[in-house]
């Protein structure tokens, strides 16, 4: 589902964030991405979501080589990739419902269909009763679950999460990870960057460790 072929990414200011990295994530696979801050985890995810383009090498997502994707096709690629961020990236002046609906609105879906899908998505993360609330009224864990609902509402085959539990206590983190586990069970491919090594170990999924832009360990549990 996700394939990196000798990929390097160099930033003019910071040098190489990713160095000659190759990896292969199968469809429906769930994997964790670990490593120190600055090891290149975020950059790797950004390359998949096409927030960045690699300096060298090729990234292939869902059978499509991203290098050959023209700029104007990027939005359609992003609809295939749900992204979750540590800081949630919610719109503070919109209700939970409206936040989750954004990807569907952007796709031009009809209103009735949007309502159905948004409620299904909110139900999955257990926030159905809070759909009319503004994000600021929610706890950190709840806000992150809104972010997750938004990432999955368009039913993308790939979900990327960048430190989704970075600000949460262990109990809430576990809940979030269990949520990911459920998406994994219905066939979604997930790549989750995290510092939470204990939690990663307890989940028993493939773990990729980055160090200074290189893939230094791959549990290859697949």
């Amino acid at each position: 589902m996700i394939k990196f072929d000798h990929v390097s990414k160099r930033y003019p200011e910071r040098g190489e964030a990713i160095k000659d990295l190759s990896l292969d994530l199968a469809a429906g696979e769930m994997a964790f991405l670990t490593g120190h801050s600055g090891a290149g985890k975020s950059t790797l995810l950004r390359l998949i979501g096409l927030l960045e383009r690699p300096t060298r090498g090729q990234v292939i997502v869902n059978g499509r080589n991203l290098a050959s994707l023209p700029q104007r096709k990027i939005p359609f690629h992003r609809r295939q990739v749900g992204m979750i961020f540590q800081d949630h990236r919610l719109l503070t002046d919109r209700t939970v419902f409206d936040n989750v609906a954004l990807p569907l609105v952007a796709m031009g879906m009809r209103r009735r269909e949007i309502a159905k899908r948004v409620r299904a998505s909110l139900d999955q993360v257990g926030l159905l009763r809070l759909e009319r609330v503004l994000p600021s009224a929610l706890s950190g864990g709840e806000q992150q679950r809104v972010g997750i609902a938004r990432a999955v509402v368009a039913r993308p085959p790939v979900i990327l999460a960048d430190e989704p539990t970075g600000n949460l206590d262990p109990e809430l983190s576990r809940e979030i990870f269990q949520l990911f586990e459920r998406f994994h069970q219905v066939g979604v491919s997930l790549l989750i960057a995290t510092h939470d090594l204990d939690l990663v170990a307890s989940m028993g999924h493939r773990t990729l460790r980055l160090h200074q832009g290189r893939l230094v360990a791959d549990s290859g549990n697949w």
Binding site: R72, R78, L91
Partner: peptide
């Protein structure tokens, strides 16, 4: 955010 969620 609109850009991230695939808005053209």
């Amino acid at each position: 955010i609109m850009d991230l969620v695939g808005a053209t």
